[in-house]
Simulated scan of single mutants.
Amino acid sequence: MENIKAIIFDLGNVLIDWNPDYVFDPLFEDKEQKKHFFQNICTMEWNEQQDAGRSIKEATEELVAKHPEWKEYIEAYYGKWAEMLGGPIHDTVEIFRQIKESGKYKLYALTNWSAELFPIALELYEFLYWFDGRVVSGEEKMRKPHPEFYQVLLNRYHLKPQETLFIDDSLRNIKAAEQLGITSIHFQNPRQLQEALLENGILDA
Rank of each mutant, 00 (worst) to 15 (best):
I89Q: 01
I89G: 00
H90E: 15
D91V: 10
D91I: 09
T92W: 00
V93E: 02
V93Y: 06
V93R: 08
V93M: 11
E94L: 13
E94Q: 14
I95R: 04
I95N: 00
F96R: 08
R97E: 15
Q98R: 15
Q98S: 12
Q98P: 04
I99H: 03
I99A: 09
I99C: 04
K100Q: 14
K100L: 06
K100A: 10
E101G: 06
E101M: 13
E101Q: 15
E101F: 07
S102R: 11
S102W: 07
S102Q: 13
S102N: 12
G103V: 09
K104Q: 14
K104M: 12
Y105S: 06
Y105D: 08
Y105Q: 09
L107Y: 01
L107D: 04
L107V: 09
A109I: 05
L110T: 03
T111Q: 06
T111E: 06
N112D: 11
N112L: 08
N112I: 04
N112Y: 04
A115E: 12
A115R: 10
E116D: 13
E116K: 07
L117A: 10
L117N: 10
F118K: 04
F118V: 11
F118Q: 05
F118N: 03
P119N: 12
P119W: 08
I120W: 02
I120S: 03
I120E: 09
I120Q: 05
L122A: 12
L122T: 12
L122I: 05
L122M: 13
E123I: 03
E123A: 13
E123P: 00
E123N: 13
L124P: 01
L124F: 02
L124V: 00
Y125K: 01
Y125P: 02
E126T: 10
E126Y: 04
F127V: 01
F127S: 02
F127T: 00
L128N: 01
L128G: 01
L128W: 00
L128A: 02
Y129Q: 14
Y129C: 10
